[in-house]
Design a protein around this nucleic acid. Sequence first.
DNA 1: AAATCCACCAACCGCTATAAT
DNA 2: CATTATAGCGGTTGGTGGATT
Length: 299
Amino acid sequence: MGRGPCCDKDGVKKGPWTPEEDQLLVQYIQKHGLGCWRSLPKNAGLLRCGKSCRLRWTNYLRPDIKRGPFSPAEEATIVHLHGMLGNKWAYMASQLPGRTDNEIKNFWNTHLKKRLTSIGPKLQINQSSSSSEPINIKCESPSTRHMVQWESARVEAEARLSMQSLLLKSKSTAKSHPDIFLQLWKSEVGEAFRIIEEKDGKTSESIVSDTPLSIKNEPVLLDDTVTPMPSKTTTVIDTTQEQEEDTCKPNEDVMTVSGSIGSNEFADSTDTALKLLLDFPGGNDMEFIGEESEFFQLP
DNA sequence: AAATCCACCAACCGCTATAAT
DNA sequence: CATTATAGCGGTTGGTGGATT
């Protein structure tokens, strides 16, 4: 049969961790490194299940955890990525070194989402008109406007993608690409971005690394005190540098990924798509929606 | 000063994919 | 190959502390 149980449910402590428990866990990991979470609690003398230990370590005790408020640059990254990917907290965490998925998720739910909701009614999106008038978005701050625009774009993209997938299924002809980014890039959303890119005739910098990356996170060893880190990090961007502007500046400080991706062609196309989609064209962030009226039309 | 409300966040829960037996 | 545990992820909950009434 399969493996033995990870922990018997009885006699397992739950709830907040005490400093003593934290100390036991940290000491054990510093001494033995990361290995089997299943056996860790017993070996470390903890009355916790392995899952709880893993969460405590990854979300709180890891030495590379960055505490404190999110910088504007980090905020912008989250908004960008959420606009693109939705609730992919783990992926966002991989792009924000020192931040955990849990932290990002909490930050989104308690700050960004609220802000988005609060300014929601103020939005005046002129979709009824078939004219080429740009969407009229009224928001207090550029960052908020930015966020709303990305959310709008994401909702549109999702709607269109689901519609497309329905159509594809009904036709049973074309195979949908397994990669969501490539799907998105191949959709009109990506098309609209490409048009703008060409119009502008410039290659804008992206907050997302040019280094090939994959959603399937490859392990990478961080230069840290505790040896084998349970790193979910693949390609990381150093956003520790405070960036006052809302817009994303080019970031040269990119860590090297130790594990290369096997299928580079696929990964590259995915990354290019993601990179380009995360780049804002021109001055008006959502200009392409107004210009490309077919964006709102079904295929 | 007490009660209530609210925001924040750590931790848990449940699900899925993958790995081990 | 089937079964089961593990790891990882996203959603949700509950405790805590500060603000407000």
